[in-house]
């Protein structure tokens, strides 16, 4: 059981090793990396390739660790008691299992994705320490102990908005997803657009990497933006020659909106293009 590139998802060797090591040792794997390098996508593909269920827990700034375990819906219990419903006598009727509970009690070993853990309160990871370590927790209202039949594969992503506590980090494996190099990127594109013409692709990649290397860009375009841009180029049927011409003369690339998401960045590229044009004259 080892994870490798699939038909529609390319992983680097490093990342494959990280995933496999985490699965073998049953440790949570913490993933960081530039936005758009496929952190969330990895969980989907991993679940698919293992034929396992994917349980996604998207973290927001208001999410508490308790939400992942269970929630006690006291308000509807109160309402039921006013209406004289029989359900009210069993408190278990009002315990709503959270994502961790679901993952612990799944039939088959599932993949649990805790997405963007850094969005939550700074104490959030600490509150989950014990649950992730022991893979069990206690429901106070019913006195029930929920433990995992088999340890789920836990993937955690972070965008680095907050530092995570040391105690939490010690219990995870950590992998920083680097921006793919030209070779891997070519493979990724080939997976997404099998019929893209070779010439268009290599010109587009040139333009793309040139853009990424431009100093002073506020937001560097990432893989997902490249894929969007290629989609547009293909949809508009822009021939490679036009792209090449634009690149040599300078000037904004066609459909630049897919790559540049910031007004200042657009201006910067325009300015450089203007300089380049003057030099060409």
């Amino acid at each position: 059981m080892s994870f490798q590139s699939t038909e529609n998802y390319i992983v680097s060797d490093e990342l494959a090793l990280a995933v496999n090591a985490a699965m073998t040792l049953q440790k949570p794997l913490l993933l960081k990396g530039e936005p758009g390098t496929g952190k969330t996508r990895l969980a989907e593909e991993l679940a698919q390739s293992l034929g396992a269920e994917l349980i996604q827990w998207h973290i927001k700034s208001t999410t508490k660790a308790q939400h992942g375990l269970y929630e006690y819906d006291a308000v509807s219990r109160l309402r039921d008691s006013q209406l004289g419903s029989d359900k009210v006598h069993d408190i278990a009727n009002y315990i709503k299992p959270g994502k961790l509970w679901q993952a612990f009690t799944a039939q088959q070993r599932p993949v649990l994705l805790i997405d963007e853990i850094d969005k939550a309160d700074i104490e959030f990871p600490n509150d989950l320490l014990h649950e992730l370590d022991r893979m069990s927790f206690y429901v106070h209202e019913t006195g029930q102990q929920v433990s995992a039949a088999q340890r789920p594969i836990v993937l955690i992503t972070s965008n680095n908005e907050k530092e995570l506590p040391d105690a939490f980090l010690r219990r995870c494996f950590f992998h920083y997803i680097r921006f793919p190099d030209a070779d891997i990127l070519r493979q990724i594109v080939a997976v997404h657009f099998p019929q893209i013409r070779q010439q268009l692709l290599s010109t587009a990649l040139d333009v793309f990497f040139e853009l990424r290397e431009l100093p002073g860009l506020k937001k560097k375009p990432s893989t997902s933006e490249l894929l969007d841009w290629l989609k547009l180029l293909l949809a508009e049927q822009i021939p490679a020659e036009v792209l090449q011409q634009k690149q040599q003369q300078g000037g904004l690339m066609p459909m630049f909106g897919a790559l540049l998401k910031n007004e200042q960045d657009v201006q910067l590229v325009e300015k450089l293009a203007f300089l380049a044009k003057r030099q060409g004259r």
Binding site: D13, A21, T24, L30, K32, F174
Partner: peptide
Amino acid sequence: QALQQQVIFADTEAFYQLARLTLVKDE
């Protein structure tokens, strides 16, 4: 433990990556 379970075998580069994966928690 990872070495014992033979996640990798006799490959310095893979060892480098595995060691980094387990020992370093911040890029």
